[in-house]
Each structure stands twice: as C-alpha cells, then as structure tokens.
Write a protein that binds this DNA or RNA. Structure first.
Lengths: 159, 159
DNA sequence: CGTACCACCAAACAGATTGCCCAGTGGATC
DNA sequence: GATCCACTGGGCAATCTGTTTGGTGGTACG
C-alpha cells in the first residue's frame, strides 16, 4: 500500500517504456532481477498496478468527440440506469457523485452530429429526469498517474 | 483507423490477458504469428493502441477519494491555469469544455479531509473565478474501451 | 547476545518467446 | 496477365522468463 522509492522508479520506468521486460529494468535500476520481479509481484497483488492492458485511443478508433453528461436520476432508479448505460458502448465511464441522484457520464461519439444520437440514446432512458451535457474541447492534461506515484514515493521517503 | 474484426479480437484478448505475448495470441486466434505481429504494429503506429503502460490504482496508492471540480476561468488566464494545474500531482486529468471558460478537473485525495487541502490548492490559484466540486461516491462503470472497440469492429464488418 | 526473519544479490538452468528473414499462396486491382 | 498486398508456415540465433539455490546484511525480539 505504501510506495517505496524503488517502487516508484519501477512504475515510472514501466510507464515510459512498457515493453521493457524485467531483466532490462533491473539493469537500468541497478538492482538484481529478482528484486524487480518481487517488487512487481507485490505491486500487482497489492492492486497498485492493476494491469497492463492496451491503452486505446477512442479518437483513433473514429470517435474523436468526447463529452460529459450530468444525469439526474429518478428516485430509486439508480440501478436500472446503471445497468442500461453499461450496455451503451459509447459510455466510457459512469460515476455517481454527491448531490441528489446525480451521475456523471463520459461519452464519445463519431462527430458532433453523432453525439446527438448518443445523447438521445443515453438520456432517452426512462429513469433519467434531466441531463446536461458539456462537450470536451481540449485535453490539456490527459489522464495521468505518474506525478501521483512520484508524490506517493516521496511521501514515503520523507517519513 | 478503421478496425478490423481481427484487430478487435487482438485488442480484446490483450485487454483480458495483457501478459500474453504474440505467439500465444496467434495460437488462440488461429492465425500466423506474423499476422498478429503486423496487426499490432499497425494498431500502434495508427495510434489506436497508444501503449501498454501500467494501470495504477490511485486508491491502492493511498488516494481513495476522487472528485470532479468544475472551474470557471478568468478571461485569458486559461494557459496559466493549465500550466499551474499540471504541477499539482493530485490533478489526474484536466479538460476544457464548452461554456464560458470552463474546465473540468479530476482530482484525488487521501481522504475527505485531505480533499479540502487539494481543492484549496487547486482553486487557490489566481485566474480561477469560481469552482464547484462533486465527490465521486461510486464507479459503476470504470473507464473502459472494450465495448467501443467491439462496436467499431462490428461497424467495419457490416459495411 | 544469539536467533529468526526478511529483503536483496548473484548465479544457474531449461524452456519459451522474440525479432527477423524467407518462399509460397490467394485475392484484388489495374 | 502482371502487380500488389496480406497471410501462411517454416527456420534461425539471441534473448528473456520462471524458478531455484546459496550467501549477505539489517532488524526485531526474547
């Protein structure tokens, strides 16, 4: 759960050059291969590293438009809405937030015009009272974790 | 840019068992190893697969609280705000959305109490006019792309 | 003070995988 | 008919993986 400095370096290295392999990592970090291997195993069983799945870019897939929809859910319909939205491929993420039955929904679409179709499909579901959508224009900071990892490693050291 | 059915299966397989290797994939998919290799190269140079970085779980790192902050930016301060927020490790993502100088900001914190510190640090920056924060309670659909990939592959086939 | 435990290093092994090259085949294009 | 392209199936040396072994140092604890 607490991240070591070496753990941090391992994660950063892995983020920079994912195909690197344990052996090469041990060389670059100046530690024994077994150590890296053990650390990696620990990080994975700890759940710190969830996996190494491919990072797919929706834009390159033909879905360059991203939007966030804030949904207001009718009382007691939360589970239904969740189940429904799970079946919509264009729904990339769904979160419930503080506030009266609110959900936040990350969408993608093939175009601005297509976004209309997606939104209709999403908010057309009975159980959604109201929805407001914001289109994403730019993404100055794409989803990242490295700075957080480094911070966590630093915290650990400074103790 | 357009995704083949085989491409789709490759991505899905890779998402399910990331450590699988090209050879094993070719066996499971019933195609030659060179084919899988060529497809993978193409997918990567196309940008469809951005990489294979480790998926780090902020919660396991000690940051179990997630929140979204909607920021209203003072005219012309957008660049400054971006630059500043980039330096805050707890800012995992930053997006500019439609609306008058609005940004959406994904945050994590060590606790609800700690969230206050993070928010102060974020909105304390000059150039941010107003901010409203929503704490994430549940994550019924964690960030996913597979259904979209399958959809894209299906679209391609049905043509 | 001695023991036990733990993380790490260094080395070794067989087995598997990778990157790369080649020749042949079938379909589509012009 | 000639050409291009993607795929197959095979083969090669080099490398990496998973795993085990023995040895070292530090720390916690009775």
């Amino acid at each position: 759960m607490a991240i070591d400095h070496l753990d941090g370096r391992i994660i950063v290295l892995l983020a920079e050059e994912p195909r690197i392999g344990v052996l090469e990592m041990s060389r670059r970090l100046g530690v024994a291969r077994g150590t890296v291997q053990a650390r990696l195993d620990r990080l994975q069983s700890n759940g710190v590293i969830r996996g190494f799945g491919p990072q797919v870019d929706p834009a390159a897939l033909g879905y360059p438009v991203t939007a966030f929809a804030t949904l207001q859910i009718r009382q007691g319909q939360g589970a239904d809405v969740r189940a429904y939205l799970t079946t919509v491929p264009e729904v990339l993420e769904l979160l419930t937030t503080t506030g009266s039955g609110d959900m936040l929904c990350r969408l993608v679409a093939r175009s601005n015009a297509d976004l209309q179709r997606v939104i209709d499909r999403v908010v057309g579901f009975d159980g959604i009272v109201r929805a407001s959508t914001a289109i994403v224009m730019e993404n100055p900071v794409p989803l990242r974790v490295i700075p957080l990892v480094e911070q966590a490693a630093r915290d650990r050291e400074e103790t």
